[in-house]
Amino acid sequence: MMKTLVKRVLLLIATLLLVTILAFVAFSIIPGDPTSSILGVEATPEQIAALRDRLGLNLPIWQRYLHWLGGLLTGDLGESYNYGMPVAQLLATCVTHTLTLAVLAFVLIVAISLPLGIIAARYEGGVVDRVLTILNQITMSVPNFVAGILLVYVFGLVLRLFQPGAIVSPQTGWGPYLWYMLFPALAVALPRSAMTVKMLRGAILSELGQDYIRTAYSKGNSKSSALWRHVLRNAMIPVVTFLAMTVADIMAGSIVVEQVFGIPGLGKMLVTSIGNRDYPVVQAIVVLIATVVVVCNFAADLLYRVMDPRLRGR
């Protein structure tokens, strides 16, 4: 187990390094000069040269990369070309918005889909199961930004449970802030919850047909105790992997849904910064998102091993 863990951690570090290389190189080789968006078109060649020198753009790419990486590791994300302020400071509120949205969406997915998946499987073919199957079908086929628009319309404009576009800052109070975030989180969560319900239901039903469940019944277990004591842990193994893969989707979904709800999160910042060729900002955002996804997958892999004894020590 220890050896596997060390191997996994090394792999994690290697993956993250690769991510930084890709993020750096990709935005360094795409055409376009950041100086022109900073200085404007009527800048003199002398001004441009001086700025390139100041930004370190004349150094070889590997030197720039190492310099940037060194900064990353010490928590220095560099300075935004465009806003002239440290990237970390610039991104702080955007990151809060997007991560809050993503975490909330993830919590909602788990909170919605675990109970519903269990109920649907436990009462397979019953009224609840059939209603859920239909709802699932609908929810799965609605893209998250469409769900977002519908939620804005129904809860924002008709029911007036929140005021679309008027995001409350967390400084004003976490309660109102989270309440505002609940609706975009729901838009991100709904399609994924539908998939998770379907997946969990399928996993439970497939486990219920296994030989060891017959053994459980032969010892006097009721259907419920067979489900709770035997089925769930086995059925959760594939679901955990699925949820981990969902994290990448949630991040992507959050960035899209932010636009619908007028949240100034990473999505907006990313689009603006790409337009401005503000590479330090773009690179920081890309590395951040990739790190969240990679670390979540790492955690899921560990959890997977804890849950399935057959995989331990491999």
């Binding site: 060891y212 006097g220 035997h230 399935d308």
Partner: peptide, 26 residues
């Protein structure tokens, strides 16, 4: 429910498939 009070108590069974008849995660 009444039948359950016999299962595993007065009446027991072992199966043909020893490889799959035990819960793999217990």
């Amino acid at each position: 429910t009444q039948m359950r009070s016999y299962q595993g108590k007065d009446l027991s069974i072992i199966f043909q498939e020893p490889m799959t008849s035990l819960n793999p995660t217990m």
